[in-house]
């Protein structure tokens, strides 16, 4: 047993075999542009949907988001989730509401989520793509085509979400193969598509 004693005032790093990157010191971060603030965030905005549903979307760990049984104890949860996805001011609430709408396979939810894939916010578009995982994608072309188009979204969160939903449904293998090398598809999306095709 080899004992290495490195007692000192500061720590010594351990040299693992695959140290990936080096963080270099910086003095400070960029200054906020003058036209950006400070702005006041209203911590008590007008309520959107059922507050009890919204409260459940504030889990500090995403693994603790509620299941459908818990959501459905609060009445029309799908409607409340849709309202939150559309109107809430907190981006994380909008995204998580869409993720949870994947628990509702009703056709009108698919229509809603497909529309939300046009949102200006990438996290919302990505959440909307993942919402479509709850739909029967093989029965109609509309949702599938929206996901295929999203493969070339400029933001990889959207492209990866679309790829994972399509691959998970066993669909669009040709489109995925083309996107894996096509110009205009984000490199991170392509990386994920390649992994999915190899599975």
């Amino acid at each position: 047993m080899l004992l290495l004693l490195l007692a000192c005032g500061g720590a010594q790093s351990s040299d693992g075999p695959d140290v990936e990157a080096l963080a270099t010191p910086i003095t400070e971060l960029p200054a906020k542009p003058v036209d950006q603030g400070p702005l006041t965030i209203d911590q008590n905005p007008p309520p959107v949907g059922n507050p009890a549903i919204r409260d459940l979307l504030l889990a500090k760990d995403v693994a603790d988001l509620p299941d459908r049984a818990a959501l459905d104890t609060h009445g029309d949860a799908a409607k409340d989730l849709a309202d939150l996805a559309t109107l809430d001011q907190q981006l994380i609430v909008r995204e998580r509401a869409l993720l949870l709408l994947a628990l509702y396979p009703e056709t009108h939810i698919g229509v809603f989520c497909r529309k939300m894939m046009e949102d200006a916010e990438p996290k919302v578009r990505a959440g909307a793509a993942r919402c479509l995982a709850g739909q029967d994608l093989s029965s109609t072309d509309t949702n599938r085509k929206a996901l295929e188009a999203a493969l070339s979204d400029a933001d990889p969160r959207v492209g990866i979400a679309a790829a994972e939903v399509l691959a998970g449904a066993g669909l669009s293998q040709d489109k995925l193969k083309k996107a894996a090398t096509a110009a205009g598809v984000h490199a991170q999306t392509q990386e994920r598509i390649t992994e999915l095709l190899e599975q």
Partner: peptide, 23 residues
């Protein structure tokens, strides 16, 4: 304060490599 190269959008599977960044 420190900075690294590359993208600020991180794959979850790369979390461990990120945490292993030499500072």
């Amino acid at each position: 304060l420190y900075s690294t190269e590359g993208s600020g959008l991180v794959r979850y599977d790369d979390s461990n490599a990120l945490r292993a960044t030499q500072i």
